[in-house]
Nucleic acid binder design. Structure first.
Length: 210
DNA sequence: ACATTAAGTGATT
DNA sequence: AATCACTTAATGT
């Protein structure tokens, strides 16, 4: 299972580092829809996604959610790095979007490698950078796009990370990830359907053209 | 057949 | 774009 990881990083990470990762990291398969990190909890290992996608969510004081971004193959959670280095608790929730394979690196190793391997520092910094950029993109979406545009972007992203032209979600679930109401989502989806972009069914949205 | 849950809609703010 | 109040449709028991 690590072969894929090796393949992806053979140019980027030193062979010795890859060997250590293989020796020390635990690989795990996790089914879709599982909670990986909960808000307010400590994180004791750093996950690197081998395959599949993880969604990262923020929550407000009422318990309403907002989707921040997806983590895909080869990416890692910036929050973990944040937590480990600052020894603080998670500010986000992470849930598997699809079935996921990941490798877990214990945090003490990750600190050790920071000193030992320059390629590791590079990797950690790059992923931090990537996450920050994604965050900015989603801030832009929330601030500058109207709800209908956000919804369209959401549908596109969903179908992309799932590699599926059908989205199996209720309007309510979509609404809460976009932090709006179910009624609004239903109405906008209906408009999209009338324009011939999608096809609506119970618990299922089929994407025709985007 | 009935209950439950998802989705559609007009009216109001 | 949010909320309310209500209807209609789909699905489970």
């Amino acid at each position: 299972m690590l072969d894929q990881l090796k393949e992806n990083y053979k140019g980027v990470l030193e062979p010795e580092l890859l060997a250590e990762m293989e020796a020390i990291g635990t690989t795990k398969k996790i089914e879709q829809g599982n909670l990986l990190i909960e808000i307010g909890t400590m994180v004791r290992s750093m996950p690197i996604v081998i395959s599949g996608a993880i969604k990262v969510l923020r929550e407000d004081e009422n318990g309403d959610e907002l989707l921040l971004y997806f983590l895909e193959e080869g990416e890692t959670c910036a929050m973990t790095i944040n937590c480990c280095l600052g020894n603080s608790k998670s500010e986000i929730r992470a849930v598997t979007e699809t079935d996921v394979e990941l490798i877990l690196i214990p945090i003490y190793k990750m600190e050790e490698w920071m000193g030992k391997y320059q390629s590791w520092r590079r990797f950690v910094l790059d992923s931090y950078h990537g996450r920050l950029n994604e965050l900015l993109t989603t801030i832009d979406k929330i601030a500058f796009l109207k709800m209908d545009e956000r919804l369209l972007a959401y549908l596109k992203e969903k179908s992309e990370v799932n590699n599926e032209l059908e989205i199996f979600q209720t309007h309510q679930e979509i609404a809460s990830e976009l932090h709006t109401s179910r009624v609004v989502v239903s109405r906008l989806l209906k408009k999209l359907e009338n324009k011939g972009h999608i096809e609506l069914h119970r618990n299922r949205i089929k994407i025709l053209d985007v």
